[in-house]
Nucleic acid binder design. Structure first.
Lengths: 113, 113
DNA sequence: TTGACATATTCCCATATCGGAATGTATTGT
DNA sequence: ACAATACATTCCGATATGGGAATATGTCAA
């Protein structure tokens, strides 16, 4: 076995920085491929390939209009990622509190509340 | 060029499901490698290698105690991921509202509020 | 039909992966 | 010093990658 395919899930798909840029760009409104190419300064085949990956895991939706293909971010598909990361929120909050407490203790613990 | 290294950032590191399991397991409290091996039923070298990746991107902290190495999740390092995904929250909320509106319209739009 | 335009796919290559097996290293107890 | 324990690393093989170049596909316009 080798590394998991980027097409396997959203986690793998967004691991690629270029794909995150594309998702950011397509979040506001749908755009044709050519505009993505111009805006993000990437090669057209590269953009098409990234879009293919994103579409396969449901991170973008596609719509044809004449010769153009309009893509837009499917924000819903990013939720699982947000939720997984969110399960750690209470832990980093705790860490911050501990750091703060240690800093206060070190500085002489003037106040105690 | 090939795919970005898993050691490059947190996004790449958490793309691996096994590494997410490890992070989940080490979030509550620090654990020695052997316990991770038993709890998650993975080979020891595999666990060590994943921990190496996680440590390199700062997702876990390590502490030696005798022959054992205790690891714990550094939740702080997961925040950037949470925040990136969070920038899409308003979009998926909009999408849900639109879906709801469409459903109501279709069902006859009995109520209008 | 023919050509132009917009996008998608294929082929190639250097590289990075993950798992398994074997081996290396650090620390402790005797 | 030696063996045992706990991890870490290295080597291997199969496979997936992303970029570049070339080519294929699909759609419209004349």
């Amino acid at each position: 076995m080798a590394r998991a395919a980027t097409t396997s899930d959203a986690f793998n798909a967004v691991a690629e920085p270029r794909r995150r840029e594309i998702l950011n760009y397509l979040a506001l409104q749908e755009r044709p491929v050519g505009e993505i190419v111009d805006a993000l300064e990437m090669e057209q085949p590269s953009v098409s390939k990234h879009l293919r990956v994103l579409k396969d895991v449901g991170l973008v939706h596609a719509r044809r209009d004449g010769r153009q293909m309009f893509y837009r971010t499917n924000a819903e598909a990013i939720r699982p990622l947000h939720e997984w990361a969110g399960t750690f929120e209470r832990y980093w909050r705790q860490q911050l509190i501990r750091i703060k407490e240690r800093a206060e203790a070190k500085s002489g613990a003037v106040k105690k509340d």
